[in-house]
Amino acid sequence: MASNSLNSSSEGSFRQSLVVQGRVLHALLIREMLTRYGRNNLGFLWLFLEPMLFTLAVTALWTATRTIHGSDLPITAFAITGYASMLMWRNMPGRCINAIKGNTPLMFHRQVRPLDVYTSRILLEFGGSSASFVLLVMAFWAFDAVALPEDALQVVVGWLTLGWFGAGLAIVLGAVSEKSDLVDKLWPPFSYLLFPFSGAAFIVDSLPDKAREILLYLPMLNCVEFIREGYFGTKMHAHYDMPYVIVFNLVLTLLALGMVRMHVVEADYE
């Protein structure tokens, strides 16, 4: 670990490092929150308003047209689970791409390292999407528009796994973006392309076998199915392979940490 203490000893114990780490993450989180949402509450409100508008629009559209989304699941809850999940795996990378480029001056404070910047942004994004998910369900539930999840624990587990995937992907893309501008340009169109395949608008059970097999290589689709099974329980027949997602996440995490060490951090030369 880099020596962080002000009295410049290089022997900072592990515990000391943890304290510094906590301090830095705390400071970065508040900084991110203030710069993103501002002091007035309206900024923060958008976190919920945007997905809420989307959910309302989808509900209206699908109720009006009765488009086949592959099941007779309650459409509002279906839209919420799909969109909230998409927000998480799409926005985490979005926030981490070029995150260091714009923040190099911060690195003058040697206790702040690229991984801290990534972590704080990922945590904030995770908190934001989680809060928006929960509040949306509560809000629609208050108006009797959705039922509560049948198995909340499964929803939480699926949500956490999806968050883990998003975090790994975010750091990998973030680290690559420091080396190549292509990531910044390609991620938005690529994520739009992935959006329809990620389960936001269908359930896997409605697909032909061949398509199922191929699309289930997408970790986020497995997570969404898992979350939805938790949400709708016996009302839906879910398809997923969570061990596959876990292995995928592990590999992604290793890759992410390795890249941060190799390319961007390079901080342990002290």
Binding site: L6, V19, V20, R23, V24, H26, A27, L28, I30, R31, L34, T35, G38, T104, P105, L106, F108, H109, Q111, V112
Partner: peptide
């Protein structure tokens, strides 16, 4: 050096940030 400061944050908030990371 002002690079580490954030233009959207107030002077006070920037000071708070520095105090936080240096404990």
């Amino acid at each position: 050096f002002t690079g580490g400061f954030h233009a959207k944050l107030t002077g006070i908030d920037n000071l708070r940030f520095i105090c936080r990371i240096y404990g």
